[in-house]
């Protein structure tokens, strides 16, 4: 059947509007569905952990504090103040030791060596230009208390 050209143009416009409406609405629904399927990016939460009194940290000494995952954090009192490093070797995850006499961190697995600031100076970590991960430290000077910012356990 022959159609009225005015009707045909009108039909096209209405069809176009309808198509836009459908695409937009179902598109938004699809987008929401995709967001739903993507697990939310949750930053690992950190929390402050009590790490003893400032007075108990002698200059030049290193103490180990256990974090919430059970890993040791090596806390050092240097000239600039308290610094803390993760004891996990960045090479392959073994735990480093502090050697007081040599003034360095040593990893027994592949003989990686880190200086007193945690920068790798020998062994595979040094080859890769790695360093011990730094753990943020807060010192409450009024109370003389040291806190470490550690990863929270999400149960």
């Amino acid at each position: 059947m022959g159609e009225d050209p005015k009707l045909t143009r009108r039909s096209w416009i209405i069809s176009a509007v309808m198509a836009v409406g459908l695409v937009l609405s179902y598109g938004v629904l699809a987008a929401q569905g995709v967001l739903y399927l993507l697990p939310p990016l949750v930053k690992p939460r950190t929390r402050k952990l009590f790490a003893g009194q400032l007075a108990n940290y002698e200059l030049g000494s290193v103490r180990a504090v256990v974090d919430l995952q059970g890993n040791q954090i090596l806390v050092k009192r240097g000239r600039e103040g308290i610094e803390a490093y993760s004891s996990v070797c960045p090479h392959l995850g073994c735990r480093v030791h502090w050697q007081q006499e040599e003034g360095r961190f040593f990893c027994p697995c592949h003989r990686g060596v880190f200086d007193a600031e945690g920068v790798a100076i020998a062994g595979p970590p040094a080859d890769a230009g790695q360093r011990l991960a730094e753990v943020p430290v807060t010192v409450d000077t009024k109370g003389g208390v040291v806190y470490l910012e550690v990863k929270d356990l999400r149960s």
Partner: peptide
């Protein structure tokens, strides 16, 4: 047919609005 299409268009925009409220 055109009426139907207009209704679909109207409903789809209402649907879109509702989805924006959801968002």
């Amino acid at each position: 047919l055109n009426t139907k299409r207009m209704i679909v268009a109207a409903l789809s925009f209402l649907f879109l609005a509702a989805l924006l409220v959801v968002a």
